[in-house]
């Protein structure tokens, strides 16, 4: 299956919601500790043997921690940059016209960006400045800042059904659920005893969300009764960096971890760990599931490789 070598350490990979063969990769030099960043827009080859083509690449002065595709324009990408900026790129435009925008409001590293999949006009950025900001692509300034977390916010994720609801995962060990029409968070879930690094909503049940934590576990929560998790998934041996629900099967999740593994889970069944891929040789920090092709997975890590493979096959198979 296709493999792409990035010059820097991979941080995030996202399938395009418009083209099944397109993906974007966020990378950072020096593990994102110091250095440049680069966004790659890649096109998967029509036949498995052919090389991955790079459609565009954008350099930044600081690490790029995350990337998100616009849900409304097939060529637009939003990058979360470690210098606190949020950059908007249009891969249809020549490099000279990019970035289209560079939005400087976060005072510290922007760690994640999530495009609203229902309204399709806005996106969220989560930053180490403890805040989440809400933006629309056509405005030069953020619409709102959500600042309640007491420590770095590592991720913010829109609810797939409610266009105004999102969850944020923070190093303050909580996940907060917000409704942008309300002034403050509507729910605080003390989700883990350690930092929460990621959260994602179930695509089929709008009350279910999953959290990934430094405590090595993934927890699945029902916001209607969040005092105890629906389930706790053990299997990673180091902090879990990301967890994402499948767009195709309600109980399927994929995760990646500092233990270098990418794992597939079905949280409804007893032996939840249903797949484990050990293809990365350094921390696996980016993973995604294709919306357009069922079972198609992509991952990236600090080994500077981007893998794309069909679930059940060997990512490293040629």
């Amino acid at each position: 299956m296709p493999v792409f070598k990035t010059p820097f350490n991979g941080y995030s990979v996202k399938f395009s919601p418009f083209y099944e063969n397109r993906l974007a990769v966020a990378t950072a030099q020096n593990f994102g500790i110091l250095g440049n960043g680069r966004v790659h827009v890649l096109s998967l080859p029509p036949s498995p043997g052919a090389p991955v083509a790079e459609i565009a690449a954008y350099d930044t002065a600081d690490a790029v921690y995350d990337i998100a595709w616009s849900e409304s324009h097939d060529s637009i990408l939003v990058a979360a940059v470690a210098d606190g900026s949020v950059k908007v790129y249009d891969s249809n435009l020549p490099p000279a016209s990019n970035p289209l925008r560079s939005l400087h409001e976060h005072s510290r590293e922007v760690h994640s960006v999530d495009y609203n999949p229902t309204r399709r006009d806005s996106f969220l950025t989560a930053s180490w400045d403890d805040s989440v900001k809400l933006w629309t692509v056509d405005r030069p300034a953020s619409i709102r800042t959500f600042k309640e977390h007491a420590y770095c916010v590592y991720a913010a994720a829109w609810n797939p059904r409610h266009a105004d609801v999102f969850a944020s995962a923070s190093g303050d060990c909580t996940v907060r659920v917000w409704d942008v029409r309300e002034p403050g968070s509507t729910m605080i879930i003390p989700a883990h005893d350690f930092e929460v690094l990621y959260t994602d909503w179930n695509k089929y049940d709008d009350c279910i969300l999953a959290t990934a934590s430094v405590d090595k576990t993934i927890r699945v929560w029902d916001v209607r009764s969040f005092r105890v998790p629906v389930t706790v998934l053990n299997g990673h041996s180091y902090a879990v960096r990301k967890v994402k629900f499948s767009p195709h099967r309600g109980s399927l999740m994929v995760s990646c971890s500092y233990d270098m593994a990418v794992c597939l889970w079905d949280y409804m069944v007893e032996d939840a760990l249903i797949g484990r891929y050990d293809h990365h040789t350094e921390f696996a920090v980016g993973v995604d599931m294709s919306v357009l092709v069922e079972g198609l997975l992509a991952s990236t890590g600090w080994d500077e490789l981007v893998y794309v493979w069909q679930h059940g096959t060997d990512p490293r198979a040629p």
Binding site: P7, F8, N9, Q29, N30, F31, G32, I33, L34, G35, N36, R38, V41, A53, E54, I55, A56, A57, Y58, D59, S91, P94, P95, A96
Partner: peptide, 26 residues
């Protein structure tokens, strides 16, 4: 054009040369 442009934009190598610590992680 985009492809080549992208490559040009990438300033081969400059990326890596850029930072103190460039090495660090390396």
């Amino acid at each position: 054009e985009l492809v080549s442009g992208g490559a040009a934009c990438a300033v081969p190598g400059s990326s890596s040369s850029s930072n103190p610590l460039a090495a660090l992680a390396n």
